[in-house]
Simulated scan of single mutants.
Amino acid sequence: MYPRPNPLKARLAADEHILGLFVQTPSPDAVEIAAAAGFHYAIIDLEHGSFGLTEALAMIRAAEASGICPLVRVPDQSPAMLRRVVEAGAMGVYVPDVRTADQARAAIAALRFKAGHNGGTRGACPTARAARPRNAGWHDFVRWSNDELMVCLLVESAQGLRNLDEILGVPGIDTIVLGRFDLWHELGLEGDRYHEEIDRIFEDFASRARAAGVRYATRLSSLEHAAAREQWQAAMARGERVFTLGSDRQLLLRAFEAATAPMAAGPGVAAAQKLALRVP
């Protein structure tokens, strides 16, 4: 199959978990490091990242070279933007702020070439980068694209939640994602963004997705903490398989904070911690 099966779809078909993160800095190195750390996919974030399509293409190439699956979060639902990122080589697309079933259908159609009565509307170009024009036939590429590209829809509004059952009924969704931060902001909730009301909304969201037979993504903080490992194990027991561990910015900040924490605590504490490390 051209060029190879989507590794994320293969893992989900085998009922294996997949781990990913958002990459919001213009850094192919970050994509390569994520692959080395054991992530299965990188969501190259054109919506909230500080870069454009040229930089995203370099990050897609880094993903291809390092064995991590490149997904792209687009800044809008326009067919032109969806087409550009998949022609650049994205193996899946995160579609933002889906509020209605019609929007879901339109996005899925824009990512599918017309084949029979599948409703695809994707424009065709046999010399697009993703088509590997010198290495494979066009019809092989069309079949591969229709079968292997992942469609991930983000529901990030109260309107989207009201229409969730209709959205879930649209054929062709590989993963659906709850935009917790956007909802927290829209609902005007005070305090931590992991507010108990957002947790309640997520549980309802997850229950409805399971009933519809649609995979959904679960947000974890970091698997390095015992509480997160317990959360992950409980989620796996519920049948959840898609996990996002935040963004490169968040993970880098945590690493930097961990490195400076002993000094921030004061010289006496730092010296005691240093001494403790020497004690067998």
Rank of each mutant, 00 (worst) to 15 (best):
residue 259 A to M: 12
residue 127 T to N: 08
residue 268 G to E: 15
residue 10 A to K: 15
residue 223 L to G: 00
residue 174 D to H: 07
residue 108 I to E: 09
residue 75 P to T: 05
residue 70 P to E: 02
residue 163 N to K: 06
residue 165 D to S: 03
residue 74 V to C: 12
residue 193 R to H: 15
residue 69 C to G: 00
residue 10 A to R: 13
residue 272 A to I: 07
residue 136 A to V: 00
residue 13 A to L: 06
residue 132 R to I: 02
residue 52 G to C: 01
residue 103 Q to H: 03
residue 239 G to L: 06
residue 243 F to Y: 08
residue 123 G to Y: 12
residue 53 L to D: 03
residue 159 Q to I: 07
residue 16 E to L: 12
residue 62 A to P: 07
residue 107 A to K: 00
residue 220 L to M: 06
residue 37 A to F: 10
residue 48 H to D: 06
residue 86 V to S: 08
residue 8 L to H: 04
residue 221 S to M: 13
residue 224 E to M: 13
residue 154 L to Y: 02
residue 119 G to R: 05
residue 135 N to S: 11
residue 204 D to A: 14
residue 20 G to P: 09
residue 150 M to V: 09
residue 136 A to L: 00
residue 278 R to N: 11
residue 93 V to D: 06
residue 212 A to P: 08
residue 231 Q to E: 13
residue 228 A to H: 03
residue 246 G to L: 11
residue 67 G to M: 15
residue 101 A to E: 08
residue 182 D to R: 03
residue 120 G to T: 00
residue 215 R to M: 00
residue 189 L to K: 15
residue 254 R to C: 01
residue 239 G to P: 07
residue 24 Q to V: 13
residue 76 D to T: 01
residue 11 R to D: 12
residue 110 A to E: 05
residue 145 S to I: 01
residue 197 E to C: 05
residue 274 K to Y: 12
residue 252 L to S: 11
residue 119 G to P: 01
residue 130 A to C: 11
residue 192 D to F: 08
residue 108 I to V: 12
residue 186 E to H: 11
residue 215 R to S: 02
residue 56 A to P: 13
residue 26 P to R: 12
residue 63 A to Q: 04
residue 142 V to M: 01
residue 46 L to Q: 00
residue 269 V to Y: 15
